[in-house]
């Protein structure tokens, strides 16, 4: 592989963010002169969601997500902000790496989709097989790529071989070397319209999908399942299922409470932009709901660690977790109805 060096020592304005995809996209927009907070990008891209697919197993555990499909935030955000993105996937890893080098050589920072397991700069305990991680490359020095991974406080370096492995990781959500960068953008994007569109999509996806596993109905479905776990499987398996939910909510970079706090921050900004005090109230409501999600995580962790009582009381403990989830579901339904009414 020919090592194309960047002409000047590359610099990139790194900003610490909570979530990889919205953080990376916000960073690229900022680099091209459009200054929006991560929360705004998340909201305009309709990032908030809930999904529970018990029949899709990832390493034996059901698929749970507190946000929409990977790449959806970027796709919607770009459309609504009048941004033209070039997005390319590669079959051949060598070609994919060459394309990256060429972009870096002309000083173009590039967003990439990667598999976390193969990124050596991640804390060891956080390296699991997950292929939806977004990170920006902004330069190359010798054999190392210079990366702005927004979930880290500072820029990081990654050896070429590891980055190639991460970009061409296989399995669910395989990145297939995805690269993306800004080709052009509208000079005066209509932020009000973008915010309204973002809100509308999220309201509709949280409330109106006629499948009982998505949106508010998905939270209710999870609540039902949580109550049954201790009756249907071994104590250990039930604890692993519960831990999986907590990890999706807190560990993978959600800004806390499974993106609910970040979305509350967006609602606050949206309220000011659209001049709708009702959205500020919705933000306060969602903050309170986020606190309940955190309480769910705290009680769940106590149950996993085993200081919530003896094995005989486990079904009761799972039941009370289930009650918290039901409460989150019905309160989120209220919030999104209120948002819908305010638009």
């Amino acid at each position: 592989m020919s090592a194309l060096e960047s002409p000047t020592p590359a610099r990139f304005d790194h900003v610490h963010a909570a979530h990889c995809e919205s953080g990376a996209f916000a960073a690229l927009l900022r680099h091209h002169g459009l200054n929006l907070s991560e929360a705004m990008v998340f909201g305009i891209g309709s990032g908030l969601f809930f999904l529970y697919l018990p029949f899709v197993k990832i390493y034996d555990l059901p698929l749970i997500s507190y946000r929409d499909m990977p790449n959806a935030i970027i796709a919607r955000g770009a459309r609504r902000l009048g941004v033209k993105l070039v997005r390319t996937r590669y079959r051949d890893p060598e070609r994919g790496m060459r394309a990256l080098d060429q972009m870096l050589a002309i000083g173009q920072p590039v967003g990439m989709q990667t598999g976390v397991f193969w990124l050596p700069y991640f804390p060891r305990d956080m390296r699991f097989q997950f292929n939806g991680h977004h990170v920006i490359a902004y330069g190359r020095q010798d054999n190392d790529y210079l990366l702005s991974d927004t979930v880290f406080e500072d820029v990081v370096r990654c050896p070429a071989d590891d980055l190639r492995r991460a970009r061409f990781s296989k399995g669910p959500l395989a990145p297939r070397g995805l690269l993306y960068y800004l080709e052009s953008r509208a000079q005066q994007p209509d932020i009000e319209r973008a915010v309204r569109a973002g809100l509308r999509t999220t309201v509709s996806r949280m409330l109106n999908i006629p499948l009982p596993l998505m949106g508010v109905a998905g939270i209710r479905a999870l609540a039902g399942a949580v109550a049954k776990w201790p009756l249907r499987m071994s104590g250990h398996a039930a604890r692993s299922h519960l831990a999986n939910v907590i990890r999706m909510q807190e560990e993978i970079g959600t800004g806390g409470a499974g993106f609910r706090f970040m979305y509350a921050a967006f609602l606050d900004e949206a309220s000011a932009i659209l001049g709708r005090p009702a959205l500020h109230e919705a933000s306060a409501m969602l903050s309170d709901i986020g606190d309940r999600w955190r309480e769910f995580a705290v009680q769940g962790a106590q149950l996993i660690r085993g200081d919530g009582g003896k094995a005989g009381t486990a079904p009761a403990a799972y039941k009370s977790l289930s009650v918290i989830l039901l409460e989150c579901a019905s309160r989120e339904r209220e919030v999104f109805r209120a948002i819908g009414a305010a638009l």
Partner: peptide, 28 residues
């Protein structure tokens, strides 16, 4: 980065060194 509210209810990005709860779930 965690989203949290200051005294005026304004959201900020705040740094967190980690949370015991996530450590327990991760350990499991």
């Amino acid at each position: 980065a965690c989203y949290a509210q200051d005294g005026n209810g304004q959201y900020l990005i705040t740094k967190s060194r980690g949370w015991q709860v996530e450590a327990i779930a991760n350990r499991q």
